[in-house]
């Protein structure tokens, strides 16, 4: 809960003037997005291990500095099912691989499969971590305020902001609906056809419940001159220092250079 205390001398509520503190957290959101884009492109466009390892090292160092290694670890754990799948399928079933590590009856894990699986997993981790670092260190309203300052329309800002706010509420409601339908005898654990019959009883109340808000919200927005012409006045704009701008342009130039070198076949 944000305390709406007044900041002496400014005459504005605290939530309007608060500044994110700490290393990397205080970096401008657009700069973080540009750096993440560079890291994602580097992880996929640079062949072999160097690109992936460099991105991995950069992300881990930044996360340590921003004190969000624990958050990254949670996201790493969340990707464990896909990691397991990638390793197992490639280890045993990489087409054309003919260098077995061992034989277990019809199964023969291969070195090529292991190598390819590890590389894919490393790319996945580097890609996920680079993106996750942005949202672990950036408040959504800061990101939206910065994008709005750079010309993103109020409609786009509203759509993203409202969706992010609406998802947790709708999830809570969906869980209640699942519990209620189970209490009324809906079989969610039985055979395939019994479970398939539950799609409409579960999906329809979630959809209808969410749609009930549309009319009221439309009227509320129109009453607040949502579709009026002209630019919106922003109460709070995240700082954009010279360091931020230099970093952002460096990331954009790096990104273009990697894509160009890859297209020209200079990266191998």
């Amino acid at each position: 809960m944000i305390a709406a205390t007044e900041v002496p001398g400014w005459g504005l509520p605290e939530y309007v003037v608060r500044r994110p503190g700490g290393l990397y957290r205080s970096t401008n959101p657009s700069t973080k997005l540009a750096i993440a884009a560079l890291e994602v492109v580097a992880a996929f466009a640079v062949p072999g291990w160097p690109g992936v390892l460099a991105v991995f090292a950069a992300v881990l160092a930044t996360a340590a500095a921003a004190r969000c290694l624990r958050g990254l670890a949670v996201i790493g754990l969340a990707t464990s099912p896909i990691v397991g799948s990638i390793l197992l399928i490639n280890l045993f079933l990489l087409p054309g691989a003919a260098d077995p590590i061992a034989r277990f009856g019809p199964l023969a894990p291969t070195w090529s499969g292991l190598w390819f699986g590890l590389q894919t997993v490393a790319r996945l981790f580097a890609f996920s971590a680079a993106i996750a670092l942005v949202y672990l260190t950036t408040a959504i309203d800061d990101l939206l305020a910065d994008l709005a300052r750079r010309g993103l329309g109020r409609r786009a800002v509203f759509v993203v902001g409202a969706a992010v706010q609406m998802v947790p509420r709708t999830i809570e409601r969906a869980s209640e609906i699942v519990d209620a339908q189970r209490a009324r005898g809906l079989d969610t654990e039985g055979r395939f056809w019994r479970r398939a019959r539950g799609v409409v009883p579960l999906a329809a109340p979630v959809v209808f419940g969410a749609l009930t808000e549309v009319e009221e919200r439309t009227l509320a927005l129109e009453a607040r001159a949502f579709s009026a012409p002209g630019r919106q006045t922003l109460l709070r704009v995240p700082p954009d220092t010279i360091v931020d701008r230099v970093l952002r342009w460096a990331a954009v130039i790096g990104l273009v250079a990697i894509v160009g070198l890859r297209a020209a076949g200079r990266l191998g």
Binding site: F158, V159, A162, V167, A174, S175, V178, V207, A210
Partner: peptide, 18 residues
Amino acid sequence: IVLMPVGIAIDIVLGSTV
């Protein structure tokens, strides 16, 4: 514009919880 976030929330919620 009001329907779009509702659609996004429906996608995410039905795709995960249900």
